Amino acid sequence: MPPRFKPVQNSVASALPTALPSTHVEGFVAYLQGECGLARNTVISYERDIKRFSDWFHESAVARVTDITLQDLSGYLRYLHELKLATSTIARHLVSLKMFFRYLMLEGILKESVADLLNSPKLWEHLPKVLSEDAVNRLLDAPMHQDLNPYRDRALLAVLYATGCRASEVCSLKMRDLQLDEGFCRCVGKGNKERLVSLNPVAVAALKTYLARERPARAGTSLDSPVFTSRSGRSIDRIQVWKLVKRYASRIGLSDAVTPHTLRHSFATHMLANGAEIRALQELLGHASIRTTQIYTHVEHSRLKAIHKQCHPRG
């Protein structure tokens, strides 16, 4: 039966080889956007994952998607491991695959999904890296007057750490989202879900300074205009945020592995260390599942073990 969802034009799926029928893949992408309400970046990631699966499928001995067995999909997972992908990346591929097979069931193409029988790889093999509170403070102070956008960069770093927001969420902030007098802002996360996040005094002060000294010269007063802009007045993107975090981390001697997400991890870990409840942290981070948030309990436990080993006389 034909897909119930209108195919998305000019997508990655349109360039797929004939390993899987193009209507299957295009319909799946439209399904993600139209019915699942996933964020654009998530849809792009899932679409890329299915392209990789399609490439593998093309080289396999399986003739049709309806012939795929659990053994075949286990072979696909082994193939992903052979590519030396990160555990978290393989886990996302598995989620993409399960959603794709469920879509095929909705379309009546498959009677059951063998993908649901696959087990997710262990996600706790590599715990996220976090910065100490002292390292975070040094990073927030790293922008200097000789930099092109010192006030913007200070405000951006302060907001990333104060809220635990993703880089994409901070980039999408509009002027109307800021409530500086009340100390919070509204952000839009994955799946276009809105949440309110608190701004600590450091972030509020940095934002007020930036809005007073740098932003007026480059952006209008419209409430729909972006908070963080380039010198041309356009909204900055995730790549720019990634680059500036890398630059300032390098300036103060931190590892080149520090990224905007490191500040998100640090925010969550520091919140737990200071008594935040796991359910409250889930809401602050915008996690759909508590299982995602629970990774930070593992991080905090690892930190405490390191302190014990360092400080105990028989550690």
Rank of each mutant, 00 (worst) to 15 (best):
G75D: 03
H301T: 13
A63Q: 13
Q282F: 09
Y31T: 04
R234S: 14
I68N: 01
W56E: 06
L70P: 07
P201F: 03
L83F: 03
S113M: 11
S172Q: 15
R303G: 10
V29H: 00
R238N: 15
Y296I: 11
L160A: 11
C187H: 04
R176S: 14
V197S: 03
G220R: 12
A219P: 04
E26Q: 15
D147V: 08
A61P: 03
F267I: 09
A13W: 07
P143L: 08
R195D: 11
F267N: 04
D177R: 03
C311G: 04
E112V: 06
T23W: 13
P121R: 06
D177C: 12
R166S: 10
V170I: 11
C171F: 03
R152G: 04
V136Y: 03
G220K: 09
H261Y: 12
R279G: 04
E214M: 06
A86G: 06
W124V: 02
C185P: 01
A273V: 04
T23R: 08
G275D: 14
R154E: 13
K174P: 05
K190H: 09
A288F: 10
F228V: 06
E82H: 04
T69D: 10
R303M: 12
R52M: 05
P17K: 02
C187R: 00
V159P: 05
R215P: 05
S45F: 07
A273W: 01
A91V: 08
R215Q: 09
L148C: 09
S255P: 02
L77K: 06
A13D: 08
I307C: 10
I50Q: 00
V25A: 14
A273I: 02
V258Y: 02
G37Y: 08
S232F: 05
A115F: 00
Y76P: 03
R48I: 01
G191R: 09
H58P: 00
S232G: 08
G75R: 00
K208N: 14
R314G: 08
H301E: 14
F53K: 00
P128Q: 07
S88K: 13
H308Q: 09
G191F: 08
R154K: 15
S113R: 08
T42S: 15
K305F: 04
V258H: 02
T292V: 10
S22H: 12
L196M: 15
G164P: 02
H145V: 07
G75T: 04
V12C: 02
D177F: 05
G233T: 06
L106T: 07
K51D: 05
R218P: 05
V241E: 00
H301Q: 14
D141M: 14
Q310I: 01
L77C: 00
A15I: 07
M175I: 00
V202Q: 13
L85D: 01
T87A: 14
P260G: 09
L157E: 10
S22Q: 11
E194S: 13
G27A: 11
E133T: 08
V188H: 00
R234L: 13
V65S: 03
L173C: 12
E47I: 03
F100P: 02
H270F: 09
V159L: 10
Y296R: 12
L223T: 07
R186W: 14
L304D: 11
V202H: 10
V202P: 06
G164N: 05
S266I: 05
V95E: 02
L160K: 07
C36F: 01
N274R: 15
M175C: 13
L285I: 06
L156D: 03
L263F: 08
